[in-house]
Design a protein around this nucleic acid. Structure first.
Lengths: 343, 343
DNA sequence: TTGAAAGCGCTAACAT
DNA sequence: ATGTTAGCGCTTTCAA
């Protein structure tokens, strides 16, 4: 079948060891022998069997990754960044989607470990309360990405989720909003932290929140049997908001799609953005932020990915592991035309 | 370090073979022994070393995948669908992004083959003219996804790209458009095929195309030094179009983002969609189609992914391989409010 | 500079 | 029903 070291050795009347040395670039091989070997490898289109090497050396140059799902705005950016770092270092990424299911999370984690991955990158579901069994006392390096439940102590890289709500509120407050509504995501640990940040900022500014201005955008089945999206939910919510008195002068939406819904509801009702009502989204999704001119919070997906990958590499290579610390990055406001220029 | 079959065998005074048999669910083991073994495996948290198994059996239960990039609307949906099929069959997906680069494509392909993947899924760049070297006469099953260059004969699953343009044109023609403009993507094989389909439909309808109404949306650096996006490019293009006389009564855009740009340009100029000008996008991206009510072409990402994965499995399992054929799926128009209800 | 021996953890094939 | 032997393709170790 496939060409083996041994085939090349036999061809050239050398031992497999010599071929192996050339393969790995060891220096104790004469230049001439090396050239002959390389030539023959080329001719035969030799490809080393990494599985065999891994069995012998104990490392696979693979990293396992588990994500709740692959779709969405965040995960693809994250995966691309991770994949790039690993590609440059010769590592391969084994990617598993848990499809939002805790049992899949467990199984895929076990599978990765059975595959002898050199490290594991783990993105928990936003509402997960613990790591998979196998990662409680890991023997393989683990880097947790994103949401970290309170009790978990793994090395992690994520976002200061509370700052999502906090920075959004501050951005609007600086732009003279005083009556700010918050359309929050459905009840998960992450959404709770973001809301808490929003409340903190408002409290600090000395503004009493109207409870009815914090609305939850729970996707539910509409009258037509179709699932309602954040877009529709936000549009409906904003219709209510602007009918109330006093009406808000700023709206923070938990996603960019919700913010798009808000913009459209406002326009339909004859209100101008940002003159009468300012709107913010979360995610900094180009496809939505550009057409709607949405001011949005960037969630640093690529940066998180790069740093997660680098952390994993340092754990694998045991390089200065002592100085590795869990990190939380801050989101960043990207201002566009849905909020005003501060005076 | 890790627990091995041998450790369990020694513990229970059995041979490694017996443990191996239990592990693989062979039936020639007494119920009692089996129970003892399973119990001990559980206690020790035994995880088989798949690397060793693979070396012995010659298959890894992994599938390699190479994509031009992970970002975008199409690839994540594709990857999710593929990942789901494989997860259910116990296969792992090793995913590599070529980051748009032909050299990376080659290297990642070689790496996958060195890793002894059981099959390879390959998405070529839209402008690629050939497969990587290693796949010209493959010894490992290969399924090509998406764009297939003319000379390539691999088993493939993709889209009838010409129908993207064709169905879009027909949709507008059925809605009484006669002056249809086409904002095409930058020059790639795929964009060419889509344009050709558009031209075919127009010719068949007996309509002479105005050459200046087929515009290429090439992303370029704008005056401010920022890269222009399809959105801006489409907006600028549509501004020109509606200033011309006669002006178009329908516009097909090569992406949903471009279609959003078109809608906005039209609104800014005081034209109503779809009453005065009908607009279509491509991609059926929920985040754009919903807010803009865009009629769009669905590119069947998930279906392509599922079928690619199933084809790969059949090749691996050699099940009815003779009946495997390359397939091209048709895109589907999803009508929304940016085009009219036909009378 | 080259090579012989041993073995990584598992399983196919074949005894017993 | 259980066990023995051999070996997957490579690399580590040590000898020549």
């Amino acid at each position: 079948m496939a060409i083996r070291l041994r085939d090349i050795a036999k061809d050239l009347n050398l031992s497999t060891m010599t071929i192996s040395k050339v393969l790995r670039g060891q220096t104790d091989v004469s230049a001439e022998t090396k050239a002959r070997v390389l030539k023959r490898m080329e001719e035969l289109n030799y490809r080393p069997n990494i599985t065999a090497r891994s069995l012998r050396t104990g490392h696979t140059y693979t990293v396992g990754m588990v994500v709740p799902r692959l779709e969405g705005a965040f995960t693809p950016l994250l995966a691309e960044a991770i994949s790039e770092v690993f590609r440059k270092e010769g590592y391969s990424l084994i990617l598993a989607s848990a499809d939002g299911d805790a049992e899949n999370e467990e199984r895929e984690t076990d599978l990765h470990l059975s595959r002898q991955v050199d490290a594991l990158l783990f993105c928990l579901r936003d509402d997960a309360s613990d790591l998979p069994q196998a990662l409680r006392e890991p023997t393989t390096p683990v880097v947790l990405i994103g949401h970290r439940p309170a009790r978990v102590t793994s090395l992690s890289i994520g976002l200061r989720e509370n700052e999502v709500g906090l920075l959004a509120a501050q951005h609007l407050l600086e732009r003279r909003c005083r009556r700010i509504a918050y359309l929050r995501g459905r009840r998960t640990a992450v959404a709770d932290q973001r809301s808490a940040g929003f409340r903190d900022a408002m409290r600090e500014a000395g503004i009493t929140l109207r409870p009815e201005w914090v609305m939850e955008l729970e996707p539910h089945i509409g009258l037509d049997g179709e699932p309602e999206t954040e877009f529709k939910a936000a549009r409906a919510a904003v219709r209510k908001l602007i009918a109330s008195s006093p009406r808000p002068d700023g709206i923070v939406c938990s996603t960019d799609l919700a913010a798009a819904g808000a913009c459209i509801a406002l326009r339909e009702a004859g209100f101008s953005v940002p003159e009468q009502v300012q709107v913010m989204g979360v995610g900094n999704t180009p496809a939505l932020c550009e057409p709607f001119g949405l001011t949005s919070l960037d969630l640093a997906a690529a940066e998180i990915g790069r740093r997660a990958a680098r952390m994993a590499l340092r754990l694998i290579q045991k390089s200065d592991v002592a100085s590795l610390r869990s990190v939380s990055l801050s989101p960043a406001v990207v201002a566009r035309s849905s909020t005003r220029v501060p005076s």
